[in-house]
Design a protein around this nucleic acid. Sequence first.
DNA 1: CGCAAACTTGATTTGAGTCAACTCCTGTGG
DNA 2: CCACAGGAGTTGACTCAAATCAAGTTTGCG
Lengths: 251, 251
Amino acid sequence: MGAYMPSGVPVLRDYRNPGDGAVPVRCTGCPIRDRAVCSLCSADELAKLDAIKSYRTYTHGAEIIGLGEDIEFVASIVTGVVKLTKTLADGRTQMVGLLFPGDFLGRAQTGPAEFDAVAANDVTLCCFSRTPFRRLMHETPNLEDRLLEMTMDELDSAREWMLLLGRKTAREKVASFVQMLWHRTGASQSDEGGEIALPLTRAEIAEYLGLTIETVSRQMTKLRGDAIIDFTSARNVRVLDMEALEEAAGS
Amino acid sequence: MGAYMPSGVPVLRDYRNPGDGAVPVRCTGCPIRDRAVCSLCSADELAKLDAIKSYRTYTHGAEIIGLGEDIEFVASIVTGVVKLTKTLADGRTQMVGLLFPGDFLGRAQTGPAEFDAVAANDVTLCCFSRTPFRRLMHETPNLEDRLLEMTMDELDSAREWMLLLGRKTAREKVASFVQMLWHRTGASQSDEGGEIALPLTRAEIAEYLGLTIETVSRQMTKLRGDAIIDFTSARNVRVLDMEALEEAAGS
DNA sequence: CGCAAACTTGATTTGAGTCAACTCCTGTGG
DNA sequence: CCACAGGAGTTGACTCAAATCAAGTTTGCG
């Protein structure tokens, strides 16, 4: 289970393992069937994918792909959260991607990875070797169409993230982060007051937002002081006032 | 011709109109044939694209796509430079894309634009109505494959840009910008000392880098003081020391 | 229970933003 | 052909938001 999940807290969000690390063997009943790269595939197309897939698990902190590695597989995130990061020579690190269940990891084309991919908590991947996947993609328009659509969605969200990094204040960044999690973890609109278990440490949130740990912490404290969010623990946020949160996020 | 080009200066880079705004009617001989979304297409595939294409021109500053518009076309940039920007409620704006000849503008899928697209100088587009383009894309794997590849390249470069926005200093940002232009404008390695005509104003460079005009100007002056770059005019840079520029860019 | 990692809080520094002139082009019209 | 208007760019003085440095406190795990 997610290393960050305090024991005894009820399961709230689906980026954690449903069940207990038990993973579907058949695609039918797969928890990400409706969102993943395979979501447009018909039953027989799915059977072909089924034949080339394999599951891999990574524990919290494990490196999935290292910078410059020539990755031999692509994958769908089944459970857990994967962070993509880029690092400058002197160690300054920026997160450049955060993948939730259903998201796709890797390029179908050849070439070395441009970033590190690390399991932010315990992760299960549904992996496809690159060559058979590419072949299947060419035979299966539904697969390629969905991958193109997902890649363009990623690009849109990268652009939103660029606006955040380039122009938002620390307060706006932190509020935007909570708001993003709220949406990505599949909260329903009526869920105000519901709890979000943060999948990232303060240090990782800082990497995501282009800030320092201290600034993230201070802004979290201020948002709590303004009665916009509350914490049941450092890793469990409750949104008290969704409208004020949107206001604070500047969007 | 590009409004920023001082008269009498020899043509240096291909993001300006080759010839005089004269545009190819046939795809053969198109200046972006080797790089654009159509680059993998065979002669007969190209003929089908040819049948649905049309050229549009925009003068410097013209809006190509407004935020929230449901764009009825997608396009390849033939000549000129297109900037994509996002703006917060109070007017803070961040550039989130910069498209050169060969780059692709728009989503094949449906849905409103997530950003503004503006002609940074005089621009020619090779446009395809969205519906026929989508249909053709489904019939033509070479087209969809290339679009997927280009979209993933865009995503990689957006992630590099995120590292810049989140973690680089003002000096590193400005140096990175010059370096990026050097590569995007197709300079050859042996071109040290060659000139780059900046396609953007200082204000636009600031939007690109998440800085203010003043900071961009100061850092340009410092890089000049360090004998890394030089200016023949405010809009024409010469790279004096490529190695030092890379060092200053922090990559 | 105790230790280390994660997180918070406070004091101080600093890099980039803001505000304010000023210069330099470039194009226009008398 | 020159004057001059206006936009683009530069430079300087000052401010401020976030980084840095430095203790603390809390939490969770062995």
